[in-house]
């Protein structure tokens, strides 16, 4: 290994020599290098230069955090119940109140407050259309939200348990959605913006909308602006959907004409508060099951027809369930992924 006419570059890349410089050489390696050193007077010169260069290339260490504390954090995480871990929404929440069955007379005010945005909600549960070659853009797990910024300044917010595929060529932004997302689209006359679900397609020009598409049909809600809905089997007719309106369509069939809705009920999942406005408890239960990986068992089925209005802190599953149970005046228990709501308490 050791030639008397070694150059410093050859020497310093030798891993055995490196171990020797680092005092990590084996006994036989050490013996070898000491013999090499004594072999030639030039070698001791080479050795000094190589050692100096090696020391030049040392890096400073960074003070590490408290390792035991970090280990405790890891252990806590590994032993956490997978269900409870899944319920943490990854965005900050605000303190809110809950009004049960309070008739809202503030609807007009609410519309005024949201006039600056459009939300279109689409929900699908079915498998994506076959033959689509679009790449996956983002995916969320239960209890997780994600925001995506597009190059033109448009934003997309994904609700939990959602997959978004698509492609963004300058002339046409096209997306395929399974789950639920809120789109805020910057107007641009020279580019098309479409969102496809298993049930149909939505064409957008500068608007904010929510799409909810989870297998039981697609729901589109426009918070501000106008979108055009194209259902597959009647693609000649584009149905115009204006702000404050909702439309449901399923597998190429429209379920009724666009109708007015409280947009906040459909868009509030993307904010700090969940908003309900004469929303049936059945719908709320379905929504919670879609968002968090849980099954909700309601013992008293008449509860499902109760209408709920008000808002609730959109933070974690426990807070939402507790508020609902309190509003409906029932007790609940949670075992793993199953939440059981008992029958109403006697007065």
């Amino acid at each position: 290994m050791a030639q008397s006419h070694l150059k410093i570059e050859d020497l310093i890349v030798d891993e055995s020599f490196q171990r020797w410089l680092d005092n990590k050489a084996s006994a036989s390696e050490e013996k070898h290098w000491i013999a090499w050193l004594q072999d030639d007077r030039d070698n001791s010169m080479l050795y000094r230069q190589a050692k100096e260069l090696w020391q030049t290339a040392q890096f400073r260490s960074v003070p590490a955090p408290n390792i035991e504390k970090e280990l405790a954090k890891l252990r806590k995480r590994l032993h956490a119940d997978p269900a409870s871990r899944a319920t943490v929404l990854k965005f900050p929440s605000l303190k809110l109140f809950w009004n049960y069955k309070q008739k809202t007379s503030k609807r007009g005010i609410r519309y005024a407050a949201i006039a600056a945005t459009i939300a279109l909600i689409i929900v699908t549960w079915n498998i994506f259309h076959s033959g689509n070659q679009l790449t996956e853009i983002a995916q969320t797990n239960y209890g997780e939200h994600k925001s995506i910024s597009l190059a033109d300044g448009s934003t997309i917010r994904l609700n939990a348990n959602t997959v978004l595929k698509g492609s963004t060529s300058p002339a046409h932004y096209q997306f395929v959605l399974k789950g639920e997302a809120c789109f805020q689209v910057v107007p641009a006359s020279n580019r098309r913006f479409t969102v496809k679900t298993v049930d149909g397609k939505i064409h957008v020009v500068g608007t904010k909308f929510v799409v909810h598409s989870r297998g039981d049909g697609t729901k589109a809600v426009v918070e501000e602006g106008v979108v055009q809905v194209e259902v597959f089997e009647s693609s000649d007719d584009l149905i115009e959907l204006k702000n404050g309106n909702i439309i449901n369509f399923h597998k190429g069939q429209i379920n009724g004409a666009p109708r007015k809705t409280n947009v906040l009920v459909h868009t509030s999942w993307a904010s700090d508060n969940l908003v309900f406005d004469e929303t049936s408890f059945e719908e709320i239960v379905q929504r919670i099951e879609e968002t968090f990986a849980v099954e909700i068992v309601v013992k008293d089925e008449s509860l499902l027809q109760e209408k709920v209005s008000g808002s609730i802190e959109n933070s974690d599953l426990r807070i939402i369930i507790e508020a609902l149970a309190k509003a409906l005046q029932v007790k609940y228990t949670q075992t793993g992924n199953t939440i059981v709501l008992e029958s109403k308490l006697e007065k």
Binding site: S61, V62, A64, P65, I67
Partner: peptide, 22 residues
């Protein structure tokens, strides 16, 4: 063996943290 996980964590945390910071 979770003790082995902890042992590896303790042993390599410093090297990993330092590299990550770099």
């Amino acid at each position: 063996d979770e003790h082995a996980l902890a042992a590896l964590f303790r042993q390599f945390y410093g090297a990993m943290f330092d590299y990550g910071i770099k």
